[in-house]
Structure formats: C-alpha cells, structure tokens
Design a protein around this nucleic acid. Structure first.
Length: 218
DNA sequence: ATATTGATTCAT
DNA sequence: TGAATCAATATA
C-alpha cells in the first residue's frame, strides 16, 4: 500500500526521538572513548560537555576548554605513580569513571579515568565555559566576580558543578549524576599545547591542552 | 607576592 | 604519631 508524503512524515515513532536533554546536550561518550592512553583522550575532551544532574533534576553544564593528562607508570606527577593507595583506588579501576581528589586543604578537583584497560591514567579537567545552570553556579561560587571566574580553574570548575568527595568513582558512562557528552562541537583543530601547571616534577612534558579561542582558560 | 587550609602518605 | 607534601584560589 503506497503512502502519501504527509503520512510518511507522521510515521516516525515518537519513542525513537531522543529526549530533549539528549538532543540538546548531544550524545553521551561511550566507554571506548576513555579506554585509551590519557595523552590521546585529553585533547579530544576539549569541546565536550560536562553535565551535572542533581537529585532534584537541576542541570549545570560546562564546556571543557582546558585539560591535563596524567599517567601512572612513567609519570612522577601522577597520584598513581607510587602505586595503589586508598586515595587513588578510582584511578586503578576501569576507565570512564570520575576521580575526584582534595588538595591544598580546601579544593576539590575532578579527573576522568582513562586506560587502556586498568592502566592508571587520568585527565584533569582544568577549565570550563559555563553553558547552562549559570544561576546555580553563581550560587555555589559566591566569590566569582565575573562569569569567567565561575569555572576557569580545576577547583573552580568542580565547585561550580558541585563536585566533591561524593563523586569520586561515579561512572560517567552508564548514566548518573555526572556525564560527559558530545554535542557535535569538534575539538580545536590546533589546540594550545603547554606544560602542566602546579606540579614540581616532570614539568617538561607538554601534556596540557586548551582551546585557543576560549576566554575561559585558566 | 602571600595567607589560607586539611587530607594523604610515608617515615619513625 | 608526626612531618612533609600538595595537579589552587583569593586578596593584596
């Protein structure tokens, strides 16, 4: 039985249409994305969306504009370098989980655990551009005098999204309070590359990447 | 340039 | 049990 054009258009299954948030926020990154060396993953994280969903359903979203790679085996600056300790348990687990640590007596920083396999690597999320939930971010970061200061810095980013000890180990892939999404924005073709910040060892490695076009880099 | 702040780790 | 370390921020 032949269908008229307008009937065709109406034959789309509504259940096949992505949910609103999925359409707007793009697609969740699959496990395989993380299951690689952090040096490969890190620059590809630029442009991705870090999405925090609170218990009441509120979303705060930041676009990643600055990252640093840390490896375990051969990287003295990595928390995993000296082997498995209680703090770095998440880094030694499977890729695609969030590793959140406490530093300088007051700050939390969020990392993405990479691979390959159970190799203890991670990418530190150093800065983001606020995309949604700005009011919530401002409330969490009362000391930010401008919106640029909301998430430009690893501890600022974590604070803006309300990330702390509770989120260490959360799975970014299977759906939960924190996810990473690809809305089609490609990483910069030519990212800025530089040495990592705030470390005292292995300072010569060019393992920091940022978006040269973003004013939100730390 | 400097004060802040406390968990984590390793060495007694 | 104690000292050293620490992938930062805010204010001056």
């Amino acid at each position: 039985v032949a269908r008229r054009p307008h009937e065709r258009a109406l034959s789309v299954d509504p259940a096949a249409v992505p949910a609103r948030s999925s359409r707007r926020r793009g697609r969740r990154l699959p496990r395989a994305f993380y299951d690689r060396d952090p040096l490969e993953v890190a620059p590809e994280l630029l442009g991705k969306l870090l999405v925090r969903v609170e218990d009441d359903g509120t979303e705060t979203v930041a676009r990643i504009v600055e990252v640093e790679a840390y490896r375990g085996l051969d990287d003295p600056a990595s928390h995993a370098f000296r082997g498995l300790t209680p703090r770095v348990t998440t880094m030694f687990g499977p890729p695609g989980h969030l590793y959140v640590y406490f530093t300088y007596g007051m700050h939390w920083c969020a990392n993405v655990v990479c691979g390959p396999g159970l190799a203890p690597g991670a990418v530190l999320l150093r800065a983001g551009e606020p995309v949604a939930g700005l009011d919530r971010m401002r409330a969490r970061r009362p000391k930010a005098r401008t919106d640029r200061q909301l998430a430009s810095g690893p501890a600022r980013l974590a604070q803006a999204l309300g990330l702390d000890r509770r989120h260490d180990g959360v799975d970014l892939v299977t759906g939960g309070p924190v996810t990473l999404r690809d809305d089609g924005t490609p990483p910069p073709e030519v990212p800025d590359v530089s040495t990592r910040i705030g470390i005292r060892v292995a300072t010569d490695r060019l393992w920091r990447w940022s978006d040269p076009a973003s004013p939100h880099v730390s």
